[in-house]
């Protein structure tokens, strides 16, 4: 089924065993570098970056809000692409990746919404505003919840993986349309509101720590994903010789 033009690592990745061992080696690095960058980014952003001339210190939640929002979106993409690979090449590991990513993505979307709400209180004076980005993020959370609900409703693991992959792909096609329509709807209903996330020219002292935080969160949530993936691998391959050996039974 799979053709030979694909690189070798692609096939290796297809082996749960190989995947388990490689993630085992990667985890300490992700933990160390991710943790370090997280601390650096947080301290830098919260204590040393200059405060905003309009919003003062309350803007500093940007260092959590923006990275979680970015990650929530890219995790959805990861989930859909992994699902597609699982569908096309019948690759078990890809299904497992898709399954382990979903709850993390949903958690990220919740975090992005929560930080957005915390930011909204001092800025707009209310916890929730139907701002375009927050609304899109809310819809993204709904999409995640749909995928997770479908996955848990189907008993057979293989069927669940395939069904959720189709749903995630449909969602992926829809995300740009949803984003566009929500943004358009927002400008229609709230002309010229003050957009917190669209600072035209953010000085380097402000965005550098933001960049660090984005990378840090990628590593931390990548780590979380690998931990979940390894659990998933062990559960699904529980009858495999190497898993039995590993667990010492």
């Amino acid at each position: 089924m799979a053709s030979s033009w694909l690189p070798r690592w692609f096939y290796q990745l297809a082996s749960p065993r190989w995947c388990y061992s490689i993630t085992g080696k990667l985890i300490p690095w992700f933990a160390a570098i991710g943790g370090l960058l997280f601390v650096i980014g947080l301290v830098w952003g919260l204590a040393f970056a200059p405060s905003d001339y309009q919003q003062g210190n309350s803007f500093r939640i940007i260092y959590l809000h923006v990275p979680t929002a970015i990650l929530a979106q890219s995790f959805y993409m990861l989930m859909a692409i992994a699902g597609a690979i699982g569908l096309i090449w019948k690759m078990k590991v890809a299904d497992m990746v898709a399954k382990s990513v979903a709850p993390l993505g949903a958690a990220l979307a919740v975090l992005a919404l929560a930080t957005g709400a915390i930011w909204g209180k001092p800025t707009w004076g209310s916890w929730w505003v139907w701002d375009a980005r927050l609304t899109s993020m809310l819809v993204l959370l709904f999409l995640y919840l749909g995928v997770m609900a479908l996955n848990s409703a189907i008993e057979s693991e293989t069927t669940a993986a395939k069904s959720t992959a189709v749903l995630a792909l449909v969602g992926l096609v829809n995300i740009p349309i949803i984003k566009y329509s929500v943004e358009w709807w927002n400008t229609l209903h709230q002309p010229a509101t003050f957009k917190i996330t669209e600072k035209p020219a953010m000085p380097a002292e402000m965005w550098m720590p933001l960049l660090v935080m984005v990378i840090a969160l990628y590593l931390v949530f990548g780590l979380a994903m690998m931990l979940r993936l390894r659990n998933e691998i062990l559960t699904r391959e529980r009858r495999a010789g190497w898993v039995k050996e590993l667990l010492g039974s």
């Binding site: 819809v139 479908l150 409703a153 449909v170 949803i178 929500v182």
Partner: peptide, 23 residues
């Protein structure tokens, strides 16, 4: 189509489809 084989597909289908209806 995704929920046709499930016994309690009714609520689930709204969960899957409603967000896609927003645009």
């Amino acid at each position: 189509a995704l929920t046709v084989g499930l016994r309690r597909g009714g609520v689930l289908i709204s969960l899957l489809v409603l967000p896609l209806y927003i645009p």
